[in-house]
Simulated assay, not measured.
Amino acid sequence: MMRGLPLLLGQLQANPIQMRTIPFLAGSILLTISFAAPAATIVYYQSSAGGNGTTGAIASDYHDDLNDPTTFGPAAGSGVNRDTGVSFSGFGTSINPLQYAGFKISALPDHELHLTQLVFGTLASSGGVRPVTSYSFGYRIDLNNDGSYSGAGEEWVMGKLYTPVDSDFSLGNPFKTWDLNIVTTGEVEFGLFASAPQANGRVVGTEISVLGDINAVPEPSAALLGALGGLALLRRRR
Protein backbone atom coordinates (compact mmCIF):
# COMPACT_ATOMS: atom_id res chain seq x y z
CA MET A 1 0.00 0.00 0.00
CA MET A 2 2.75 2.49 0.97
CA ARG A 3 4.95 1.50 -2.02
CA GLY A 4 2.12 2.39 -4.41
CA LEU A 5 1.45 5.83 -2.86
CA PRO A 6 4.41 7.71 -4.54
CA LEU A 7 3.40 6.21 -7.89
CA LEU A 8 -0.21 7.40 -7.42
CA LEU A 9 0.91 10.92 -6.45
CA GLY A 10 3.21 11.03 -9.48
CA GLN A 11 0.34 10.10 -11.76
CA LEU A 12 -1.88 12.78 -10.25
CA GLN A 13 0.80 15.46 -10.63
CA ALA A 14 1.25 14.46 -14.26
CA ASN A 15 -2.50 14.87 -14.81
CA PRO A 16 -3.78 18.11 -13.23
CA ILE A 17 -7.39 17.35 -14.24
CA GLN A 18 -7.39 14.33 -11.91
CA MET A 19 -5.88 16.45 -9.16
CA ARG A 20 -8.80 18.87 -9.36
CA THR A 21 -11.45 16.13 -9.26
CA ILE A 22 -10.25 14.70 -5.92
CA PRO A 23 -11.68 17.50 -3.70
CA PHE A 24 -14.92 17.46 -5.71
CA LEU A 25 -15.42 13.74 -5.12
CA ALA A 26 -14.49 14.00 -1.46
CA GLY A 27 -16.97 16.84 -1.01
CA SER A 28 -19.69 14.79 -2.66
CA ILE A 29 -19.05 11.87 -0.32
CA LEU A 30 -19.12 14.10 2.75
CA LEU A 31 -22.35 15.72 1.54
CA THR A 32 -24.06 12.34 1.15
CA ILE A 33 -23.01 11.19 4.61
CA SER A 34 -24.07 14.39 6.37
CA PHE A 35 -27.61 14.25 4.93
CA ALA A 36 -28.22 10.56 5.68
CA ALA A 37 -30.84 10.24 8.44
CA PRO A 38 -32.69 7.36 10.11
CA ALA A 39 -36.37 6.79 9.36
CA ALA A 40 -38.69 9.01 11.37
CA THR A 41 -42.26 8.54 12.55
CA ILE A 42 -44.59 9.61 9.77
CA VAL A 43 -47.86 8.89 11.55
CA TYR A 44 -48.69 7.43 14.96
CA TYR A 45 -51.98 6.07 16.30
CA GLN A 46 -52.73 5.32 19.94
CA SER A 47 -55.87 4.02 21.58
CA SER A 48 -57.73 6.59 23.67
CA ALA A 49 -59.95 5.94 26.67
CA GLY A 50 -63.69 5.88 26.21
CA GLY A 51 -66.67 3.66 25.71
CA ASN A 52 -68.28 2.32 22.58
CA GLY A 53 -68.21 4.72 19.68
CA THR A 54 -65.14 6.64 20.87
CA THR A 55 -63.17 8.50 18.21
CA GLY A 56 -59.88 7.11 19.53
CA ALA A 57 -56.92 6.09 17.39
CA ILE A 58 -56.47 9.60 16.00
CA ALA A 59 -53.15 10.29 14.27
CA SER A 60 -50.50 12.36 16.01
CA ASP A 61 -46.76 13.12 15.76
CA TYR A 62 -46.97 13.21 12.00
CA HIS A 63 -44.49 14.75 9.58
CA ASP A 64 -44.76 18.43 8.57
CA ASP A 65 -45.01 17.50 4.88
CA LEU A 66 -47.91 15.05 5.38
CA ASN A 67 -51.57 15.81 4.75
CA ASP A 68 -53.71 15.35 7.85
CA PRO A 69 -54.10 11.55 7.97
CA THR A 70 -57.47 9.95 8.50
CA THR A 71 -58.59 8.49 11.82
CA PHE A 72 -57.89 4.77 12.17
CA GLY A 73 -61.35 3.31 11.88
CA PRO A 74 -63.75 1.06 9.96
CA ALA A 75 -63.97 1.50 6.21
CA ALA A 76 -67.34 2.75 5.00
CA GLY A 77 -69.70 -0.15 4.40
CA SER A 78 -67.20 -2.74 5.58
CA GLY A 79 -69.41 -4.18 8.34
CA VAL A 80 -66.66 -3.59 10.93
CA ASN A 81 -67.46 -1.60 14.07
CA ARG A 82 -65.28 0.41 16.45
CA ASP A 83 -65.56 -0.79 20.04
CA THR A 84 -62.92 1.50 21.58
CA GLY A 85 -59.79 3.30 20.34
CA VAL A 86 -57.98 0.49 18.51
CA SER A 87 -60.57 -2.22 19.05
CA PHE A 88 -62.78 -3.43 16.23
CA SER A 89 -65.46 -6.10 15.93
CA GLY A 90 -67.62 -7.56 13.19
CA PHE A 91 -65.06 -9.61 11.29
CA GLY A 92 -66.38 -12.71 9.51
CA THR A 93 -65.20 -16.30 9.30
CA SER A 94 -62.65 -15.64 6.53
CA ILE A 95 -60.39 -12.78 5.43
CA ASN A 96 -62.54 -10.48 3.28
CA PRO A 97 -60.86 -7.70 1.24
CA LEU A 98 -64.00 -5.58 1.68
CA GLN A 99 -64.12 -6.04 5.46
CA TYR A 100 -61.44 -4.05 7.25
CA ALA A 101 -60.52 -1.13 9.47
CA GLY A 102 -57.83 1.22 8.25
CA PHE A 103 -56.38 4.67 7.66
CA LYS A 104 -54.98 6.71 4.76
CA ILE A 105 -51.90 8.90 4.49
CA SER A 106 -50.51 11.09 1.70
CA ALA A 107 -47.80 13.71 1.28
CA LEU A 108 -48.38 17.37 0.50
CA PRO A 109 -48.24 18.39 -3.19
CA ASP A 110 -44.75 18.26 -4.70
CA HIS A 111 -43.64 15.76 -2.02
CA GLU A 112 -43.03 12.02 -2.10
CA LEU A 113 -43.71 9.40 0.57
CA HIS A 114 -41.00 6.86 1.36
CA LEU A 115 -42.48 4.42 3.89
CA THR A 116 -40.11 1.86 5.39
CA GLN A 117 -41.92 0.19 8.33
CA LEU A 118 -45.31 -0.46 9.89
CA VAL A 119 -44.95 -1.14 13.63
CA PHE A 120 -47.97 -2.33 15.62
CA GLY A 121 -48.90 -3.66 19.02
CA THR A 122 -50.32 -7.16 19.32
CA LEU A 123 -53.79 -7.14 17.85
CA ALA A 124 -55.27 -10.61 18.42
CA SER A 125 -58.12 -11.24 20.79
CA SER A 126 -57.72 -14.97 21.23
CA GLY A 127 -59.99 -15.45 24.23
CA GLY A 128 -63.43 -14.39 25.39
CA VAL A 129 -66.65 -14.64 23.48
CA ARG A 130 -65.35 -13.09 20.21
CA PRO A 131 -61.90 -14.54 19.48
CA VAL A 132 -60.20 -14.26 16.09
CA THR A 133 -58.32 -17.04 14.32
CA SER A 134 -56.15 -14.85 12.08
CA TYR A 135 -55.32 -11.23 11.29
CA SER A 136 -53.11 -9.33 8.89
CA PHE A 137 -52.28 -5.82 7.73
CA GLY A 138 -52.30 -4.83 4.08
CA TYR A 139 -51.72 -1.69 2.06
CA ARG A 140 -52.70 -0.34 -1.33
CA ILE A 141 -51.64 2.76 -3.24
CA ASP A 142 -53.91 5.18 -5.09
CA LEU A 143 -51.39 5.90 -7.84
CA ASN A 144 -53.70 8.33 -9.66
CA ASN A 145 -54.94 10.11 -6.53
CA ASP A 146 -58.51 9.70 -7.75
CA GLY A 147 -59.80 7.91 -4.65
CA SER A 148 -60.86 4.80 -6.55
CA TYR A 149 -58.02 2.31 -5.87
CA SER A 150 -59.30 0.45 -8.93
CA GLY A 151 -56.45 0.87 -11.43
CA ALA A 152 -53.64 -1.49 -12.34
CA GLY A 153 -51.15 -1.85 -9.50
CA GLU A 154 -53.60 -0.50 -6.91
CA GLU A 155 -54.59 -3.87 -5.41
CA TRP A 156 -54.05 -4.82 -1.76
CA VAL A 157 -50.55 -6.00 -0.85
CA MET A 158 -50.87 -8.23 2.21
CA GLY A 159 -48.37 -8.67 5.02
CA LYS A 160 -47.85 -11.68 7.25
CA LEU A 161 -50.96 -13.59 8.27
CA TYR A 162 -50.81 -14.14 12.05
CA THR A 163 -52.50 -17.29 13.41
CA PRO A 164 -52.56 -19.01 16.84
CA VAL A 165 -49.47 -21.07 15.92
CA ASP A 166 -47.38 -17.87 16.02
CA SER A 167 -45.81 -17.18 19.41
CA ASP A 168 -46.64 -13.46 19.12
CA PHE A 169 -50.27 -13.96 18.09
CA SER A 170 -52.04 -13.23 21.38
CA LEU A 171 -52.21 -10.13 23.56
CA GLY A 172 -49.27 -9.43 25.85
CA ASN A 173 -46.52 -10.08 23.30
CA PRO A 174 -44.06 -7.53 21.88
CA PHE A 175 -44.56 -5.17 18.99
CA LYS A 176 -44.36 -6.52 15.47
CA THR A 177 -42.70 -4.88 12.46
CA TRP A 178 -43.54 -5.07 8.77
CA ASP A 179 -40.66 -3.85 6.59
CA LEU A 180 -41.90 -1.81 3.64
CA ASN A 181 -40.44 -0.13 0.58
CA ILE A 182 -43.21 2.21 -0.57
CA VAL A 183 -42.17 5.22 -2.66
CA THR A 184 -45.08 7.20 -4.09
CA THR A 185 -46.64 10.61 -4.59
CA GLY A 186 -50.05 8.93 -4.30
CA GLU A 187 -52.22 8.17 -1.30
CA VAL A 188 -51.52 5.00 0.72
CA GLU A 189 -54.25 3.14 2.60
CA PHE A 190 -53.43 0.62 5.31
CA GLY A 191 -56.05 -1.96 6.29
CA LEU A 192 -56.44 -4.39 9.19
CA PHE A 193 -58.11 -7.67 8.21
CA ALA A 194 -59.16 -10.58 10.43
CA SER A 195 -61.13 -13.81 10.54
CA ALA A 196 -62.97 -15.49 13.41
CA PRO A 197 -64.41 -18.92 14.17
CA GLN A 198 -67.82 -17.25 14.33
CA ALA A 199 -69.14 -14.01 12.90
CA ASN A 200 -68.45 -10.79 14.84
CA GLY A 201 -64.84 -11.57 15.79
CA ARG A 202 -63.01 -8.84 17.68
CA VAL A 203 -59.46 -7.46 17.30
CA VAL A 204 -57.82 -5.35 20.02
CA GLY A 205 -54.62 -3.34 19.65
CA THR A 206 -52.46 -0.62 21.21
CA GLU A 207 -50.17 1.70 19.23
CA ILE A 208 -49.58 1.68 15.49
CA SER A 209 -46.81 3.64 13.74
CA VAL A 210 -45.70 4.17 10.16
CA LEU A 211 -42.01 5.05 9.72
CA GLY A 212 -40.12 6.55 6.81
CA ASP A 213 -39.46 10.00 5.38
CA ILE A 214 -40.97 12.55 3.01
CA ASN A 215 -38.91 14.24 0.32
CA ALA A 216 -39.60 17.27 -1.85
CA VAL A 217 -39.98 16.42 -5.53
CA PRO A 218 -38.22 19.02 -7.74
CA GLU A 219 -40.20 20.76 -10.45
CA PRO A 220 -39.54 19.25 -13.91
CA SER A 221 -38.02 22.56 -15.03
CA ALA A 222 -35.65 22.63 -12.05
CA ALA A 223 -34.57 19.04 -12.69
CA LEU A 224 -33.94 19.86 -16.36
CA LEU A 225 -31.87 22.93 -15.46
CA GLY A 226 -29.83 20.82 -13.03
CA ALA A 227 -29.15 18.21 -15.71
CA LEU A 228 -28.14 20.88 -18.24
CA GLY A 229 -25.82 22.45 -15.67
CA GLY A 230 -24.16 19.10 -15.05
CA LEU A 231 -23.63 18.55 -18.78
CA ALA A 232 -22.12 22.02 -19.15
CA LEU A 233 -19.70 21.32 -16.27
CA LEU A 234 -18.60 18.05 -17.89
CA ARG A 235 -17.98 19.84 -21.19
CA ARG A 236 -15.82 22.47 -19.50
CA ARG A 237 -13.76 19.77 -17.79
CA ARG A 238 -13.06 18.15 -21.15
Rank of each mutant, 00 (worst) to 15 (best):
M1E: 00
L5P: 01
P6K: 10
L7Y: 14
G10S: 12
L12E: 00
P16T: 15
I17C: 11
M19I: 05
R20L: 15
R20T: 15
L25M: 14
A26P: 00
G27D: 09
G27Y: 07
S28Q: 14
L30I: 13
L30M: 12
T32S: 14
F35Y: 05
F35Q: 03
V43H: 01
Y44M: 03
Y45M: 03
Y45L: 00
Y45T: 01
S48D: 03
A49N: 12
A49G: 14
G51K: 06
N52M: 13
G53M: 09
T54M: 07
A57T: 02
I58Q: 02
A59W: 00
D61T: 12
Y62F: 11
D65Y: 15
T70C: 03
T70S: 07
F72N: 07
A75R: 03
G77H: 08
R82C: 04
R82Y: 01
D83P: 00
G85Y: 06
S87N: 15
G92L: 02
S94V: 07
I95G: 02
N96E: 15
P97N: 13
Y100E: 10
Y100C: 10
L108P: 02
L108R: 11
L113T: 10
L115D: 07
V119H: 09
G121V: 03
T122W: 09
A124P: 02
S125V: 12
S126M: 05
S126Q: 00
S126P: 03
R130L: 04
P131D: 03
V132Y: 00
V132S: 02
T133S: 15
Y139C: 05
R140F: 06
R140W: 08
G147K: 11
Y149G: 08
S150L: 10
E154T: 08
V157K: 06
L161M: 00
L161P: 00
P164Q: 01
D166A: 09
F169A: 02
F169R: 03
F169C: 02
L171R: 07
G172D: 14
P174R: 15
F175K: 15
F175A: 13
K176H: 07
W178E: 13
D179L: 11
D179I: 02
I182S: 12
V183W: 13
T184M: 13
T184P: 13
T185V: 12
T185A: 14
E187P: 11
V188D: 09
V188P: 01
E189G: 10
G191W: 11
L192Y: 04
F193I: 04
Q198W: 04
Q198E: 09
A199E: 09
A199R: 08
G201T: 04
G201P: 05
G201K: 04
V204R: 12
G205Y: 04
T206N: 14
E207K: 04
I208N: 06
L211R: 13
I214S: 04
I214Y: 01
P218C: 02
P218Y: 12
P218T: 09
A223V: 07
L224P: 00
L228N: 06
G229Y: 06
G229Q: 10
G230N: 12
L231V: 04
L233N: 12
L234R: 01
R236T: 11
R236K: 09
R237T: 03
R237K: 10
R237F: 04
R238I: 10
